[in-house]
């Protein structure tokens, strides 16, 4: 989640983490909720682009102007144990083109679910090394139109993903996290029964290329404040380039590298409550928009343990 819709890159590129909970938790950071703690909150993100890459050629399109996507989401993270968390994300997406006649789209997009597990958490002198494994996936919540890029709210592919993540935390202040992911993307079904990729296909089924992704983030982290810089890359394993003056298609080879910043702030007076915000920009890509992204979210931690009502704010 939060790292949500990696596969809807063309439009959304919300690849730079969208939200945190007080105790951390996105599917791309190295923080876990404690057992029985449930962190939930609304998030908002805005992304837009004017220029995009048609294959490898960068251009604008006066018949689209600026294409924007707003995502309203509810995100949550539950501590099944201190080492195992379950995360979800429920986004509602609204798209718009500032020029031309094409109608913007909106609707509930894809539900994503993720399990995050930390098998290794070792102290090495002043530092601590943790290894995480994540698995999860996403599936469309509604019958939205995938075949209307760049204004579709998503691509309707069901995904399954696995991620390996390593976190190095020094002096309880400085950290670096690196992760690599593999995303399987199921075929999708169009409303039409033929389409052209790099050849004419007589079917309503589209073979979606899988994708890999890596993410590096580093900065300052305490239980009250996180400030980090992020580098993210998404690479589609296959797919084809947009031909000149063609429209994008769900199975295009969509690649993007982005950089960004994130901040999380935990209120000292109400430590269950945290505010997050971030922004980023795509710096290199192929068949994607060169999007700018900004996001904000508010999270609240509930203690769902039956025994005692207490909020443990100690860092995991």
């Amino acid at each position: 989640m939060k790292q949500l819709q990696l596969h809807k890159l063309f439009l959304l590129l919300v690849t730079i983490a969208a939200g945190f909970c007080a105790k951390g938790q996105t599917d791309i950071d190295a923080i876990l909720m404690e057992k029985n703690a449930f962190c939930i909150g609304p998030g908002y993100s805005y992304s837009s682009w004017k220029n995009y890459w048609e294959g490898t050629k960068k251009r604008d399109n006066l018949n689209l102007g600026t294409v924007s996507a707003q995502t309203f989401a509810v995100m949550g993270n539950y501590g099944i144990t201190n080492k195992l968390n379950a995360l979800f994300n429920i986004p509602y997406v609204v798209t718009k083109a500032s020029a031309g006649t094409l109608k913007g789209q909106q609707g509930m997009q894809d539900l994503s679910l993720m399990l995050k597990y930390r098998p290794i958490n070792k102290k090495i002198g002043d530092a601590r090394l943790a290894v995480f494994g994540l698995i999860g996936g996403s599936l469309p919540m509604t019958n939205y139109v995938a075949d209307f890029l760049p204004l579709s709210i998503g691509n309707r592919s069901k995904t399954a993903m696995a991620r390996l993540m390593v976190d190095y935390y020094y002096n309880s202040k400085w950290f670096a996290t690196a992760s690599a992911s593999y995303v399987y993307r199921s075929n999708i079904e169009l409303d039409r029964n033929s389409y052209y990729t790099d050849r004419q296909v007589l079917s309503n089924q589209v073979q979606m290329p899988n994708a890999t992704s890596f993410n590096i983030r580093a900065g300052y982290r305490t239980q009250w404040l996180i400030a980090e810089a992020i580098l993210n890359n998404w690479t589609t394993q296959g797919g084809f380039d947009i031909t000149q003056n063609n429209m994008p298609f769900p199975s295009n080879r969509m690649n993007a590298t982005s950089v960004g910043l994130n901040i999380k702030y935990v209120l000292k007076k109400i430590p269950q409550l945290s505010l997050t915000g971030g922004a980023g920009n795509v710096i290199a890509g192929r068949n994607v928009g060169q999007s700018f992204n900004a996001n904000a979210a508010v999270f609240y931690v509930l203690d769902l343990s039956k025994k005692e009502k207490k909020v443990n704010t100690s860092n995991n």
């Binding site: 399954a160 075929n187 296909v201 007589l202």
Partner: peptide, 12 residues
């Protein structure tokens, strides 16, 4: 799941 076949059988 990852190794799922993605082959498409076209109409004709």
């Amino acid at each position: 799941v990852t190794s799922c076949k993605k082959e498409i059988t076209e109409q004709t």
